[in-house]
């Protein structure tokens, strides 16, 4: 588990920028479209996603490697992971309610939504598929969560600007939101190859 600082930065930054979960892998599109209207909501949702992603990875990675794989039942991954995530979300909610009620009040409504946020299950599965070590997995999950937050942050700004626009009848609502997302996702393409060069990968 020798992980240099550069390699660690590389994993986190590439999950944020070049492999952005929302804008290049299309994971977590529902909250990206649904909860990005107001910046506060977008940020609340993102913080909750980051927390759940990291905690879920910390739990699912050992389960896969020490519980499922040694018994030859790696294929149970999907069922086990989704149940673990659902249970975790419940636990985090109870924990926050009891010990950090302020945070619970802020994030409370987003937590139940996260169980079915495909970015969370996605990051847990992809960590296994990519054969990341435990530390690498945690870094990747953290980066992915921050990447989700970045996409939400950018898009919340865009939406605040175009909310009151006088759209053509057919493009009112979600259709124009998708076109706006299309333009937003363009700018992430400009960074391709950048991290590889900076970190000499």
């Amino acid at each position: 588990m020798n992980l240099s600082l550069t390699a660690a930065f590389y994993i986190v930054l590439s999950a944020i920028i070049t492999n952005n979960y929302v804008l290049s892998k299309f994971l977590g599109i529902c909250p990206f479209l649904g909860v990005s209207k107001k910046l506060d909501n977008a940020m609340g949702m993102s913080v909750a996603v980051i927390i759940v992603m990291v905690v879920a990875t910390a739990v699912t990675w050992p389960i896969q490697h020490y519980l499922l794989d040694p018994r030859g039942i790696g294929y149970m991954q999907t069922i086990v992971f989704i149940l673990v995530i659902a249970a975790l979300v419940q636990l985090i909610e109870i924990f926050l309610k009891k010990y950090i009620p302020g945070l619970h009040k802020a994030l409370g409504i987003y937590l139940p939504l996260i169980t079915t946020n495909c970015a969370v299950l996605g990051v847990c599965v992809l960590n296994i598929d990519n054969e990341f070590s435990f530390v690498q997995s945690l870094l990747n999950s953290f980066g992915s969560g921050v990447g989700f937050m970045l996409a939400m942050f950018l898009f919340a700004g865009v939406r605040s600007k175009i909310e009151t626009n006088d759209y053509p009848e057919s493009f009112k609502g979600i259709a124009s939101t998708l076109v706006a997302a299309s333009i937003t996702s363009l700018c992430f393409l400009g960074f391709s190859g950048m991290l590889e060069k900076i970190f000499g990968m």
């Binding site: 950018l154 865009v158 333009i183 400009g190 391709s192 950048m194």
Partner: peptide
């Protein structure tokens, strides 16, 4: 650093997107 030799248009688009903020 990036694969593209020129970044002006990407940079301006990104700042366009950041303009509301």
């Amino acid at each position: 650093y990036a694969s593209y030799p020129e970044g002006v248009s990407f940079a301006i688009l990104l700042m366009n997107i950041l303009t509301p903020h």
